[in-house]
Structure formats: structure tokens, C-alpha cells
Design a binder for these strands. Sequence first.
DNA 1: CAGTGGTCTAGACCACCGC
DNA 2: CGGTGGTCTAGACCACTGG
Lengths: 242, 242
Amino acid sequence: MHEQPSPTHQPLYQQVYRMLLDRLASGDWSPGELLPSETALAQLYGVSQGTIRKALDTMAAERLVVRHQGRGTEVAKHDSERSLFQFWHLYDEDGSRRIPSSKVLECVRTTARAGEARQLNLRRGAPVVRIRRCRYIDGRARIIERITLPAERFPGIESHGKALPNTLYALYQKQYRVTIQTAIEKLRAVKADQNDAESLGIEPTTPLLEIERVALDLEDEPVELRVSRCETNQIHYKNILD
Amino acid sequence: MHEQPSPTHQPLYQQVYRMLLDRLASGDWSPGELLPSETALAQLYGVSQGTIRKALDTMAAERLVVRHQGRGTEVAKHDSERSLFQFWHLYDEDGSRRIPSSKVLECVRTTARAGEARQLNLRRGAPVVRIRRCRYIDGRARIIERITLPAERFPGIESHGKALPNTLYALYQKQYRVTIQTAIEKLRAVKADQNDAESLGIEPTTPLLEIERVALDLEDEPVELRVSRCETNQIHYKNILD
DNA sequence: CAGTGGTCTAGACCACCGC
DNA sequence: CGGTGGTCTAGACCACTGG
């Protein structure tokens, strides 16, 4: 199934990748479900199995999909495992890491501030849900978080109130069909303000690591803004460059 | 060229990858040089071109090698481009980044402290070279760095004194045949001490972003320890999770 | 133009899973 | 056991590079 050369020629396996991605984003298959087999997809799209394989391998590398020899290719699902390995960079001094517990301090519907609107690609004053929570590692408050969500993508999420689950990305995916695929983080060192100091039980002016994260869905639309402030005496942010 | 199944069976393309990596590490080919063509390598190792391709694609993904259609496969070379894209995460507020200029404050041969020895996999008191330098963005001092090198891997490097070049990884590669392949960074927020404050022209106790980096060579041996302290009012550390 | 890597195909055999 | 993905091969054609 070759194609004639043309000005906009894209390799077949990239076209297939695009088509599969679109079907994923549109919810044709649900997280945890098995895709059709490689041979079935090859027939469906009229290409060879090798071409399908190359597209699926790319998707596996991007964690859109998980391959299981002998079983099939599964649509990636958000659980605490994935949150840990893809989206969690805070480590204890001993090198271990785990998702901390959380206490929701506030969860309200309100309107976007200028900065939030810009980062979430909303108009100013658009409805948003703002969550503030404190996170605990080894039973001690270490992180204070402020999360902003576009209300239209998460209708009624504020009704969870303080009972919001700890692993939010799984909730986004299961309840709102929003899959977090990428995140862009900006890190800075800042002084704790009065609020931070009280919540974390530290002196004001203690240096904190501020992590500002914009999370994107399958179509690279921003769907969550999260600002975390961390006390880094016992923990650190680890990044591997390769 | 199939192989009989055995308890320690590894796929052919991984065996080829290993062999090519070993030859790279031992300096059989120099950075910037072209490898033999895929067909030549296939003959050499007695496997098909597809198997060679899979090994080389892996190496390309790890930036060990750069592929050029119509020209050949080149051994990756360290230059300011690569330093920027693989090892530089500090961005201006406008989203741009460039390698800052540097002024060497100190460059001396001495002995490893306990922490340095541990991180560089040396015995305590082993000879090391310690470099301190200040880095400038837009003409303003923003980063203070302390670099520790195992003296045995970089004989005589201290003789460069304050004339050390700005892009050190290129120097390591060209002059000492040490290629930096990976780096592990730990980030924390700290208070500026008296020294930091003077060098950066800020108040003591200003919060700084501390980046502690251990750089590894092709064989995953630690070869450089670098602690950078950054003033993050105008710049931030950017990380993409995907 | 000859030679390189990039794409695509077809088919063989293997390792693994679930029934 | 049949069906899945994983490995490996052989060969065709294309796009690009350099002389």
C-alpha cells in the first residue's frame, strides 16, 4: 500500500500513528482495554504488520499504550504506579519515593485569574475550580499545593469537596475522560510566605522549592495548573538527563 | 544467523548494540567520525541489515550517534549545541535559553572530601581537581558553581587555571576522551550563604535553587560532580515529563 | 552517479498468555 | 492449543548526500 509522492507526504507509519491517536483521544477504546491485534489493524488500514508495529512501538514509547507479549496491546491507564513513575520526581534522601497522602484544605468553584487563564488557555474570568491541599510524607507536612482546573472540562468536580482522592489523574481519566499525557514543570526557589509557614510548620522565609506544572491531555491541550511548594530538607527533586 | 535458545539468551540486536557501545567506549571510532555503513556492519557481524538498523536506532535515541540520510551514521560529538539541548535546563522568563559565560574563580588540585568521594566512586582522600566559577546571563551573575573532577581521569586539567573554556564537556571529550552521556540531578531550595551572596550580589538568606549533578560517561562511571546555585528571579529550571 | 540511510513489505520462527 | 506480540531475515523502492 504505497502512496504517490506528494508535497505533504508523510510516512505511512506516522499516518497510522495519527489515526490511532485520534481514535484514542475520541474514546473509541477505553483505558485498560485491548486494541485489535497487529494483524487485524494491518488489514483494517491496508498496510503491512511491520508498519502497524512501528506506529504502536512509537505509542508504547510515549506510554500511550502498553504492550504485552501473548496478550495484546493495552490502552494505558492512570493508576498510582504510573503517577509515580511518570509524574513524581520527589525522592527521600534514601532514594525511595512514594505518593504522599493529602489533606484537602479548600475546593471551590471560582473564576480564572489572568495568569491562570493564560496558562490554561482560557479567557480571563472563565470558570475554574481551585483546590488547595497539603501533602504528607512520613506523616509530616512537606508540600503545599494549589491546583487550578478549567471547570468546563471537569463539570461538578468541586462537589467532591474535601473528599477528593489522593491520585487526581486517575480521577480525571475515569470520571471525566481526560488523560494526562505530558506535563511541563518550571522550578524556582522562593521564600515561604506566612500561609506556607503555617501549613508546613516552618519559619517564614524558609527557602522552598516551587514547582509550577501545566499538565496536557492527549491533544496537548492544557487541562491542569498545579503550583507545589516543597520543603526540601528531607526530600529533593530528582531529574535524569539522558 | 539465529542462535540456539539458552538461559542467558539476549536478542541479537541487543548483542550488537553492546558490541558497538564497547567499541565506542574504547575509542575505536572518534566523535564526529562516520561508522561503517549498515550493510558493512551487517556483513561484519553476520546479521541482517534490519538487525543492525535496530541497534543503531537505539543508539541514535540515546544520542550516542547521529544518523544522516545519504551520508552515514556519525559518532555523537559534544559541542555547545548538544550541551544546550541535553544538559541545560535553565530558561529565561521569555522561554529562551543560552549557555551563559563563565569566570573561573578557582581551579586547584586537592583531595576528595567524604561526600565527593562517595558520589564520584573514589576512595576518600583520592586526588581531585576542584573548580569554582561564576556564570553570567545577560551580563549579570546568576549562578555559582563548584565542580569536582577525579584527577586521574583528567591529568593536568588544573594547568588550564582560570583560562578553562566555558563548555567543559567538549573539553573533556576532545582532550581527555571522556564523553558525558548521562547526568543525574538533585534539586533543592537553599539559603544563600555569605559567599554566594557576595558572588551573586544579593542579600544573604535569599533563596537559591541548588542543582547537584553527577555526570556519567559511556560506561556509566561518574566522572564529574557539579553543584550549582542559581538565583531564580529571572530564570527557572524547566523540565518536561512525558 | 554510486552509496547512504528511510520506508515498506512478506514471511519465518520464537516466547508467552489464556483457555 | 490458538492467538498474541517479539525477533530476524531478505528484498524492493525512495530520498538524500557527495563527488
